[in-house]
Design a protein around this nucleic acid. Structure first.
Lengths: 105, 105
DNA sequence: CAGCTTCGTAAGTCATAACTTACCGTAAGC
DNA sequence: GCTTACGGTAAGTTATGACTTACGAAGCTG
């Protein structure tokens, strides 16, 4: 059920901006904080959530922490979405809907 | 930017349960409320959010409103996710990451 | 028409999570 | 070794959003 963590992580606009910023290139916490309209500790907290959702990974480089994009979280969310395109469920749902329309239910 | 509404809509567990419940068959507000551990007005409010995200559609049937699943919202979210699998961005990001690793940046 | 059902909205409460400042540990530079 | 830079965590505040009850509109029922 890790896709829940991914959805929650991406639901916050600041967190989405941080995540999408890493799409271009990997950055330190300070670099990310400069781009964002919030304080550095706030960015740290957001990165914690993103890491928990496996949307970013950290690389310690001496004094700094270099954050980069991680695809694993996105993949689990995509798998969740894909389950909604099942043909069987689709057909069943449509049939029920038709019956309701026709007052057969 | 409608994918934002979709992510926000799916971020709430109650809303996710309502949405997934409609996967099986279309239902009235009352039916949905019976399944959920919250009041009927709460369900109404959640349905409003889901509708705004194009995750459900309504069908007025006399006194009742029959809610059913709508794929449009899911599709826009999927398109958003797919943009992260662009090979060009991937290659660029990896190259930058390599340079940082090697202190070339 | 009177009463009952269905459901949306308004208003207010409460829990949560997004923020702030303050502080601490750790690594780097002089 | 002392100072400075980087970043994580704690504690407290504030904003948001998920809930509740109360109410009203619109439609079936007898």
């Amino acid at each position: 059920m890790t896709y829940e963590a991914v959805i929650i992580a991406l639901a916050d606009p600041t967190r989405r901006r941080i995540f999408e910023s890493l799409r271009v290139k990997s950055k330190t916490v300070g670099e990310l904080a400069e781009e964002q309209p919030v304080s550095r500790p706030a960015v740290s907290q957001h990165l914690k959530v993103l890491k928990n959702a496996e949307l970013v990974r950290v690389e310690a480089k001496g004094n700094r922490r270099i954050y980069s994009m991680e695809k694993k979280g996105l993949e689990s969310l995509r798998r969740y979405l894909d389950t909604f395109w099942s043909d069987a469920l689709e057909a069943y749902g449509q049939e029920i809907f038709r019956r309701i329309e026709n007052d057969e239910l």
